[in-house]
Simulated scan of single mutants.
Amino acid sequence: MTKRQLKFHDHEFEIDTYWLDSLDDQPKPLAIVFPGGAYKFIAGREAQPIALKFASEGIHAIVFDYPLISEKQAIYPLVLQEIATLLNWVGEQSKVHNIDLNKILLVGFSAGAHVVANYNTLMTNEETKKEIFKDDIKVQPAANIIGYPVIDLTLGWPKEDWAMKISADILYWQAQEHLNNNSKPTFIWQTVTDQTVPVMNSLVYAQKMELLHIPYELHLFASGGHGSSLATYVTQDGNEDNVNFANAKWWELCMNWLKVRDILPKE
């Protein structure tokens, strides 16, 4: 793992890169990971373990240390501007690290999934994109993966006054409302018993994708809490509730979906 500092205008941000050694000249997919943390912190259980899991599947990974709630700077639109900057940087690195620019994934958990969902809506619409990021975005994601996602800030999370702190502009509150015909295919998973982020978030996003005929795959597991990450002992973090053999199947299901999408080779 190597840390890198990137910059959008005068705002610096950090990424952790997990490049795979090239044993051949075959370009590899890249997953850009957005951990959860309620926009208050970056959840470690959804950072390095997820990046290493992608690496085990032959996929480069980057963990993005996106902006958090502070008094100095609003999260939006800065976070979307930083993602666009990162994607353009990835394009510059493609030959150095053998990155397949046609197989870029945005991977978000909880609040990180809200970031991914907003990028998939606002930055795939030319009208809203040009208001947020003036330059060309030369690299675009091929697909998204979101786990126990925050989609709509009015559906039960946050319960306190976090919505206004995340953004005072309601443009960024309800990602499903801005899905469009250019939005990318998305793999969605959550538990129906999630007591932190209501499952309705996943349902409204999938429903809008269905109406727009955007490819998606939705998996809702019968039990389990919020934030289980891989749902195995690897990401248990001292909490037995984070281990769930049934929910852990999401990874295998997701890898199968990536094969269906021709992002991973079919075996």
Rank of each mutant, 00 (worst) to 15 (best):
L171R: 13
G156D: 08
K184Q: 11
S110G: 12
K138D: 10
A117D: 09
G156Q: 07
S202L: 00
T186D: 06
G147L: 03
G225Q: 05
A248W: 00
C254I: 03
V115N: 12
V115F: 10
L203K: 04
P158Q: 01
N144V: 02
S223H: 15
T235D: 10
I137M: 08
A142T: 10
S223I: 13
K130Q: 15
F187N: 04
T128Q: 09
K249H: 01
A117M: 09
F245W: 08
N247K: 13
L211K: 13
P215Y: 00
E126T: 13
T235H: 08
G224P: 04
D237F: 10
G112S: 02
N125K: 05
L179P: 02
Q176R: 04
D135F: 05
A222V: 06
Q140P: 03
A113T: 04
N144F: 04
L122D: 03
V150G: 00
V197T: 03
N239H: 05
W189C: 01
S229K: 11
V192Y: 01
A113V: 08
H178R: 09
A113L: 03
T196Y: 04
A163D: 12
Q140G: 02
H213W: 10
T232D: 12
Q236S: 13
L203I: 15
Q207R: 13
E210W: 09
L211Y: 10
V192N: 07
L211N: 12
T235F: 04
E252C: 00
T154N: 15
L230N: 07
K129W: 03
T128V: 08
V139L: 07
V116Q: 11
V199M: 07
Y172L: 07
I214P: 07
F245Q: 08
S229H: 02
T232H: 08
L122S: 06
L211C: 05
Q176K: 01
Q190I: 13
I145M: 12
N242S: 11
L179Q: 03
M200F: 07
I146T: 08
G147A: 09
S229A: 15
A113S: 07
H226Y: 11
V197P: 02
G227Y: 02
D169T: 07
T191S: 15
Y233E: 14
A231F: 11
S202Y: 02
L220W: 02
N144M: 10
E131M: 13
N244Y: 01
S223W: 12
D136A: 15
K138P: 01
T154W: 00
S167W: 06
M255D: 03
D237E: 14
Y205D: 11
K184G: 02
W189H: 01
A168R: 12
K249G: 08
K134N: 05
Q236W: 00
W251R: 11
P185W: 01
T196M: 10
N201L: 02
N125V: 07
S202N: 01
L179M: 13
F133N: 09
S110R: 09
A206G: 13
L203Y: 05
A246T: 12
S223M: 13
A206C: 10
E131W: 04
D169Y: 02
V116H: 08
L179E: 02
S110C: 08
A111C: 12
